[in-house]
Simulated assay, not measured.
Amino acid sequence: MPMSERSFLGLSAAGFHPVAYTQWGRDDAARTVVCVHGLTRNGRDFDPLALALAGQRRVACPDVVGRGRSGWLPVPALYGYPQYCADMTALIARLGVEEVDWVGTSMGGLIGMTLAAQPNSPIRRMVINDVGPFIAKAGLQRIADYVGKDPVFEDLAAVESYLRFVLMGFGRLSDSCWRHMAEHSARRRPDGRYGLAYDPGIAEAFKNQPMDDVDLWAVWDRIQCPVLVLRGADSDLLTAETAEEMTRRGPGAKGNVRVVEFPHTGHAPALMSEDQIAVVRDFLLDA
């Protein structure tokens, strides 16, 4: 399937910045899917899913600003959901469509929820991967303990070893999946060694406010589109209780929410194995 690396300019209070995205499938596909990654990740995490969808959909997988091939903001305090939502709105405009389907992992799911809750939202169907409208501070603290660090690695094997540890919640992945993530999660440093492909400044939001539970039920209650909620059975970010409550409130009150739980997985299902891809593909193509 056709795959290309593209970019556009986003705008923050500090000026313009490049936002990179990978596109799979044809420009004239009947529908478009936008896949948005988690806090420290990048759009290439979705390569296996995008490839599975590209025969029937155009799939755009952005690197949220500060990650992957996208630019870094000169003022770390600007990293946050208002900026992320503005950039994703610009991406939808660049794609030239009035509707999109959304797949969001963790941070990407929260961006999707925020956009889907707005009046006249362009999001038609949404997959939320291991995040919800209530996040306990214990899960946030675990992420805060490693995000923003800037370790240095001698080679890609060391990068892969690090990712296998900090992302163990992704579940039982093949060696080729871990290698793929390492290749796209590393940036080459001037000294020839490797760093992680994200701006350590994205951790600014964790440093400047007290760690507490996050309650976004008011956002969830405004969403009207059908939602597929994915949960790792061992997740500390999306509890079983919150996932169940999501089926009763907001779009769930109208029977528009389905929850699927994956065993032997924490935060967050990687969406790289065939069983996980099949669940997402069936939901998106069923409409």
Rank of each mutant, 00 (worst) to 15 (best):
Ala138Tyr: 06
Leu140Ser: 00
Gln141Ala: 15
Gln141His: 04
Ile143Cys: 08
Ala144Pro: 07
Tyr146Phe: 04
Gly148Ile: 07
Asp150Trp: 03
Pro151His: 13
Pro151Thr: 13
Pro151Lys: 10
Val152Ile: 14
Val152Trp: 03
Glu154Cys: 08
Glu154Ile: 12
Leu156Asn: 03
Ala157His: 11
Ala158Val: 05
Ser161Leu: 13
Tyr162His: 15
Tyr162Thr: 06
Tyr162Asn: 14
Leu163Ser: 02
Leu163Met: 08
Arg164Met: 15
Met168Asn: 03
Gly169Ala: 04
Phe170Gly: 00
Phe170Leu: 15
Phe170Thr: 07
Gly171Val: 00
Gly171His: 01
Arg172Lys: 13
Ser174Cys: 04
Asp175Ser: 14
Ser176Met: 10
Cys177Asp: 15
Cys177Leu: 04
Trp178Ile: 08
Trp178Ser: 05
Arg179Tyr: 03
His180Glu: 10
Met181Leu: 14
Met181Phe: 15
Ala182Ile: 04
Ala182Gln: 06
Glu183Met: 12
Glu183Tyr: 07
Glu183Val: 12
Ser185Thr: 10
Ser185Glu: 11
Ser185Asn: 12
Ser185Cys: 06
Ala186Pro: 04
Arg187Trp: 00
Arg187Pro: 00
Arg187Gln: 11
Arg187Cys: 05
Arg189Val: 04
Arg189Pro: 04
Pro190Ala: 09
Pro190Met: 10
Asp191Phe: 14
Gly192Cys: 06
Arg193Glu: 02
Tyr194Ala: 10
Gly195Thr: 02
Gly195Leu: 09
Ala197Pro: 08
Asp199Leu: 12
Pro200Ser: 06
Gly201Asn: 13
Glu204Ile: 12
Glu204Gly: 02
Lys207Pro: 00
Lys207Gly: 00
Met211Gln: 08
Met211Val: 04
Asp212Phe: 05
Asp213Val: 07
Asp213Ser: 09
Val214Phe: 00
Val214Tyr: 01
Asp215Gln: 02
Val219Ile: 11
Val219Phe: 02
Trp220Phe: 12
Trp220Arg: 01
Ile223Tyr: 14
Ile223Val: 14
Gln224Val: 12
Gln224Trp: 07
Gln224Cys: 11
Cys225Phe: 11
Cys225Lys: 08
Pro226Asp: 14
Pro226Leu: 08
Val229Thr: 09
Val229His: 09
Val229Ile: 15
Leu230Ile: 10
Leu230Asn: 11
Leu230Cys: 14
Gly232Pro: 05
Ala233Pro: 01
Leu237Trp: 00
Leu237Lys: 00
Ala240Cys: 02
Thr242Glu: 00
